[in-house]
Design a protein around this nucleic acid. Sequence first.
RNA 1: GCGGGGGUCGCCAAGCCUGGUCAAAGGCGCAAGGCUUAGGACCUUGUCCCGUAGGGGUUCGUGGGUUCAAAUCCCACCCCCCGCACCA
Length: 972
Amino acid sequence: METLRRIEEKWQKRWEKAKIFEANPDPTKPKFFITVAYPYPNSPQHVGHARTYTLADVYARYMRMRGFNVLLPMAFHYTGTPVLAMAKRLAENDEDLVSDFVDVYKVPREKLKELTEPLAMARYFHQEIKEGMKEIGYSIDWRREFTTVDPHYNRFIEWQFHKLRERGYITRGSHPVGWCPKDGNPVGQHDTQGDVEPEIGEFTLIKFGHGEWVLPTATLRPETVFGVTNIWLNPKAKYVKAIVDGEKWIVSRECAEKLTYQNHKVTILESFDGRALIGKLVKNPATNEEIYILPADFVDPKNATGVVMSVPGHAPYDYVALENIKSEPSRLVEHGLKEDVIKTINAISIIETPQFSEVPAADVVKKMGIKEQTDPKLEDATKEVYRHEFHNGKMKNNTGKYAGLSVAEAKEKVKQDLIAAGKATIMYELLNRPVRCRCGTECVVKIFENQWFIDYGKPEWKALAHKCLEKMRILPEELRAQYKYVIDWLHEKACARKSGLGTRLPWDPEWIIESLSDSTIYMAYYTIARHIKEYEIQPDQLTDKVFDYIFLGVGNIGEVAEEAGINAKVLEEMRQEFLYFYPLDSRHSAHELIPNHLTFMIFNHTAIFPESLWPKQIVTNGLVTMEGAKMSKSFGNIIPLREGLATYGADPIRLSVLATAELLQDADFSPSVARAMRDRLERLYKLVIETAKTETSEKSQPSNEELTTIDKWILSRLQEHIKRATDAMEKLAVRKAIHTILFELDQDLQWYLKRAKATPKTATAYILDEVLKTQILMLTPFAPHICEELWEKMGGKGFASLAQWPNPDEAKVDVKAEESETFIATLLEDTAHIIRATGIKPTKIFYYTAAKWKWKAYLKAIEKSLEEKVEQASLIKELLKDEDLKGRGGVKEIADFIGKIIEEINKMPKERKERLMQIGMVDESRILETAKTFLETEVNAEIIIQKEEEKRYDPKNRAKMARPWRSAIYIE
RNA sequence: GCGGGGGUCGCCAAGCCUGGUCAAAGGCGCAAGGCUUAGGACCUUGUCCCGUAGGGGUUCGUGGGUUCAAAUCCCACCCCCCGCACCA
């Protein structure tokens, strides 16, 4: 571990000193521009965050070794409200947060006070994250770093929004948001107690008439208005009579207040208890039927209007409430109703569903054993009925013109019709009530006026986004469908808030552009960020015209430069640098940003830049879990990145977050994985140190004749591994790449070393040098520190990080050597099987190689099977034409033999057949003789090799079982 | 619900696109042996069932189907995870 640490620091310093990751335009080299979603500095990073960044870095390092001029920059996203909320919580000494910072992230306690200032907090964690990125060895060009609250960046965002507005993509309107009445602010997930997302639902208020008064019943299922049997009020709740937009309404007291947030003019006239209305009659506006108002405890005055229409046929709550009253009709008397009134009320069935009887609510209530209207299981019951009815339900004949429609259709139609007829209206309500603001106040829904939107709903814009997507490479490709879906689904997106850090909307400065809207095209900003710093360009010099020139090539350079007071040469340099690095070659993020950020990026690029500068690729990855569980504060299983680095080392962490899963899946991190990686690297380290000691003369490349079969074998395998690793890297199948490079290649190497030890005249020193150098180079993107060290130790020239990625050498592919080795391995396996099955402790093992005529028949059979599927009979006939074969094998033997091999041959993949044909007949005895010492040590017995067709010792008559590439075995 | 992903031999997880080399890689765990003062690490072997000869049997969510042949292709069903916005 100490060594590891030392190596890490050593190479990080050398990289920095040599500036090898600072990328400037170089017309002689192809460029590759990679960006990762910049981090939000409201807490330090944990190992989970490392996955996306490490993936991007590995890719950057790989492409660099493929000869590209790679730019990987980084910035910090200060925009938004979370950091404000956090600073506030910290100022209030919120225990959870303090313990998070102090216990989990090891922020020194005395620092906390400083961090109560939002910007200070952001700056602190910014540095923290940056340190971590350096310690893990990312190949970032830090000269281009910025934050989204830098005034220069603000100018850039202003320019972007001017462009969007010019193109007609900015609109203004109102929409419902979660709202804290006390703070006077919209609330998002991070603003609420328990971090719950306020879910806004749209209730239909159906206006039941009671004389001149309106009782607006709130429902999520307007289509059930035809099944209403009564109205529910909570007798104990406070209701009010109020003038709402000129109509006389009766609603709960809470509702009256809420309506004011939803643009209704409300004047409260009087207040009374719900019981006062029990037993009164109201008229259903859809059917004109007269029905009673009845009491129900489950009615929550805080939910919507506090007036509920009762549909016992299809709503479990209503069904149970009605049953309750029926079983206890005396309760009605206290409200001045006759007991027998209740007898006339029966569930009305208006929807038919295959899964249910006439009264679905009754089915489900009985199934779940629900007895009381306060039973929490009623929530599930409601969902179950709704789920089936929504999908499979049809409106019955008693629903007038809606008969025959599906529930999904009817729901929308009924709502629209009622609203159009003035018999209903809309009210928004929080579905997951109560949601409390961090300040403790219960949140409501407010219709936010004059909100600014980016209108992703514009069809012509969607068409551009689709076009961009079609041309893009999406990794993993499986998620393309999701992007398509999101592009179609997006509509107006509120793009500004009234609080938080960020850039002010240039034409309406009381609004601040929110974080998902100021992070869509900033990749372009990286290309000029270093000029801004180096030439000390001031924010006010960065006019729209300057950006127009740099990014769009619009305007006269002389005039623009003059006007902005920027040297024309510098301006042109910026334009050229942008054109060199743009378009973006690869964008990296976690999958969760597909529905917003990544798709916004596509949209905004198509809106602002010409087609040739649209992004070319998006790569996303799953999350990191911690020993199978989601990483979260509440589970207490967060490992801060820097702590992880200190404990396990940078390279092991890099490997750990990438080796356990491909892009699509979540990766599982655990200390044992990190340790395993570290141990694996240490083993490699030791092996290389050993190897490095060998005389250099021994490592020089021997001629082909000097190589033994096993030497050729490992070199051939090496080419295969290079090919596989390269293919995997091209698809960013990093898990596969790591497995190939670190494990599969190693397995072969171990086998080689074992074989070489028992084989005379191998070129082991040369082979080890060759294999290890290749392995180290391929491992460099993943474990750059240790690889640099080992590369140096092995006498590699320059930085491994800048060396060329290995190319497979076709000349070293040797199919014969590979088949020979498979032959040995299979034989060893078979031998072991026999020993195990028989329980013999072997002293002597006899191997009998197949007779020549078998080889002839075998190859003939393969040849035939390449043309067509071979049948036993026809094949035998064919073979018997050959007099030579017939004479040597005999008809019966040939038939027996063919019988044995025919199945094997028909199952054999085509490539293998071709390979075997290419190799032809081999001298198996010779192969076995060379491997004899090795085989003897492996099985710990004497090995005797004989030929089937020669005189031999064979008491059990086993030799006849010999097949080409599969010698017969006799053990004693 | 909509959209996306997934269900493989104790666990994790490859394979599935391009059917046959698949009883099915690899890792972890477990067992035995080696090494070691001991522990760890490391190495070897085994880890679905049966078998005194390299073999056989039953497996890849469930049920059907296509095929000489299916973990892989088709159909239906069941289950799990993620996203559905104004929030980074």
